[in-house]
Design a protein around this nucleic acid. Structure first.
Lengths: 129, 129, 129, 129
DNA sequence: GTGGTCTAGACCACG
DNA sequence: GTGGTCTAGACCACC
């Protein structure tokens, strides 16, 4: 069983779906620094996709600094190095903008958006059933 | 001059950039229901891109219900029909989740995220200079 | 004919050799901002390698910000954005250290190293014959 | 305690990191000709890596002429035989070129590069604390 | 036409 | 055993 839940959906690139799933698992604490990351071939078999596709996701995750590759002996979830406050904001700002635009176009009140954000924030920490 | 500001950037599909620009213009009130929407050829010429590309964006915007095509007379910004509260939330929720995950992976405090959201929310209503 | 000289050598990854060749061509002014970058298939054919291998180099170069991809219509050499002084130094420092260590191990005098550096610096600007 | 400082980092081959560490120690005078070089098993244990990995580094270092293996009695740092001036330059030139190319692509002024080189050169001789 | 994704399967470097 | 590279050839999105 994979340490990150992932149900493949048609439509967008498989390797990106993997990247996103791992990001999510790390964000929710499902996977923590130092944890073993499954072998490329394992993931490929589990998902029923080509190892090269998984490899691409691993390359991306390595570039993002989310996992560390120890050549010849596998991958591990990386310890995150602290970054400057502004850098964090810069990375997140585009998503914030898209969210605000989308919510307005849906005719959603700002308070409702804040509510939704708070609700999802809490849900993220709930234990899986 | 186009009624929605758009500076094309390399990297992602032009037609999506157009869609996003229109969404943004509608969200900020730069364009309102009933406003005339420029002809495909006009936009294409203004941006210096292929008309087919613009057409694709228009098709997408029509499908999203943001603009309405009146064959033979042109396009107009659509009047949004009110939707159920849950429907709005459902449309916005995926973006909310991505935002929360990304912000956590950046090691950002929840309060800082809320601050950023508030700041960008305000900025969205500022008049362009 | 390719706009960057490259003679493939066995031993290290082809895609890295391509990356390095392009870096070099840009550094020497052989290719400048805005220049058209050859199609992946063209390069592949010219070098006699698989298009996917070239594609990998293009991906890398895009990530490095050396070239810009305009989906569906090709690649162009990017305009470099200015970076902070420290950032430049940080990027170059590891290479400087390796050079100093290597030169010492060769028993080379520091002045000779400076001479060599100066000589190669000048050579880089000479016109090709 | 090992006579050459080394903190293993993920990402690139361990055996190369060992080779580089030894090169560095010799270059800075931390290890000199005739010095005893630790046994493979010792290094392996100290670093917590596979002896085969260390063996590969030793083989490489021997081929480079940095250390000499006296079968049955251990390894020693080799006495460097003087080489021709041109040979030294030839060995160092590729690194010089890479450095120049990289520094240009970073948009670094030549004087700044020389400054950096000088600074690092000085730093290399500072005593460790 | 362009670049981007995915699959299949081979081979090598690393430990 | 691990991950990394390369090849071959198919298909899709974009313009």
């Amino acid at each position: 069983m994979l340490p990150f839940p992932l149900k493949l959906q048609p439509g967008d690139p498989i390797y990106l779906q993997i990247v996103q799933a791992v990001k999510s698992a790390v964000a929710t604490g499902l996977m923590g620094p130092g944890d073993r990351f499954p072998a490329v071939r394992t993931i490929a078999q589990e998902l029923g996709v080509n190892p090269n596709t998984v490899q691409k996701a691993v390359t991306e995750l390595t570039a993002l600094g989310l996992i560390e590759v120890h050549p010849g002996q596998g991958c591990y979830v990386a310890v995150r190095v602290p970054v400057r406050r502004e850098a964090k904001a810069a990375a997140v700002r585009p998503l914030v903008r898209r969210l605000l635009i989308e919510s307005r176009n849906q005719g959603m009140a700002h308070e409702d958006l804040l509510d939704l954000l708070q609700r999802e924030h809490t849900k993220l920490d709930e234990p899986r059933h």
